[in-house]
Design a protein around this nucleic acid. Sequence first.
DNA 1: GTCTATACTCTGATAGAC
DNA 2: GTCTATCAGAGTATAGAC
Lengths: 211, 211
Amino acid sequence: MSEADHNTEHEILEAAKKVFIRKGLDGARMQEIADEAGINKALLHYYFRTKEKLFESIFTQVLQGFAPCIVAIMTSDLPLFTKIESFADTYIDLLLENPYVPNFLVNENNRNPERFVNMLKGQGVNPNILRDQIKREVEAGIICDITVENLMVNLVSLCVFPFAARNIFCSMFGQNEEEYNMFIRNRKKEIPKLIIGSLQPRPNKPHDSVA
Amino acid sequence: MSEADHNTEHEILEAAKKVFIRKGLDGARMQEIADEAGINKALLHYYFRTKEKLFESIFTQVLQGFAPCIVAIMTSDLPLFTKIESFADTYIDLLLENPYVPNFLVNENNRNPERFVNMLKGQGVNPNILRDQIKREVEAGIICDITVENLMVNLVSLCVFPFAARNIFCSMFGQNEEEYNMFIRNRKKEIPKLIIGSLQPRPNKPHDSVA
DNA sequence: GTCTATACTCTGATAGAC
DNA sequence: GTCTATCAGAGTATAGAC
């Protein structure tokens, strides 16, 4: 990739990423991508034959940028609480650098679901490892019981949705860009606090208070 | 509206809603809307002049369908815990009936943010009332402290994102449509449990255990 | 590999008959 | 109000020179 940094194909991919992420597959214009890359429209077709194929490349590339975080929490063998804290921290940083990606992925994926399924499997996303970990930690009395589905959906929703609905929340709260980013950075602590709090076995259970 | 139910304008709006929600502004075709409505393309322009104007009508209509839930939690004078339970219950039902709306609203809004801001204000969405309620309940010792922003973002994210990312989660967990809907219905209880749990003042505070 | 020029299709919008 | 026919523009894709 070191020598490819300045070649045309790389320029095109960078330009296409910007345009597709902002406008989507339907909204993007090949002319706009060409302008952004500082080249001619015909050259896009020379490298990627069709708009569709160019889009596929971008979609895959963007998706792969976000997969490692998900894979890590699904597969690593750190304690669950550590994983949750680490995920929120890493994922929100990644999102702050790519604030328009959630919308892009979610929207284009729903428009064409087939594209997604295989890609996820290929990345090694498998909930069973995390499911086993939860089971072990429940049995060890470290956490309350929860399904892997609810845990993952809660965690990802709390991290990602504030980006997807950024403008909606901004206008709802009368915040500007900067204030909202600060709000989100604070959530790197708030989200694990919320989730871990709900998983911690309460010391004041009925049978404890009688004992 | 009773007599308008069967007139052409209503047919067009219903058809346009379906198509725009599935395909977005850019992806939708006037021809497809006409087909869906069982009329001619020219008639669309007779009633709504441009695609853009037709889209505006749909966007406003759809948004207004979702506003009341938000307004209710922002303004009603029920106890906070009751509001949270009621919101999750009502909102998720609404979403189950309109599963593609979150994507539509979030995506088209981010494409054209100005459209949104005035609309929200017009609906009477004002976080200050809820902010005051939180303050009162904190002072009364009913709940832990939380910002209105974090509370609303948590609540809405947990309810809405599972719809926006439906396909992603489905394929991640290997669930089919029906299983996933059941999962979401269960969350009508899970979400309030999570949020209310985090707001409940812990009886086992440091100074309590010493007392 | 890169460009200019152009072919061709799709689609939003209009004209005009009924 | 509703239709058929058609225009005008935009946009993807290709041909062909350099």
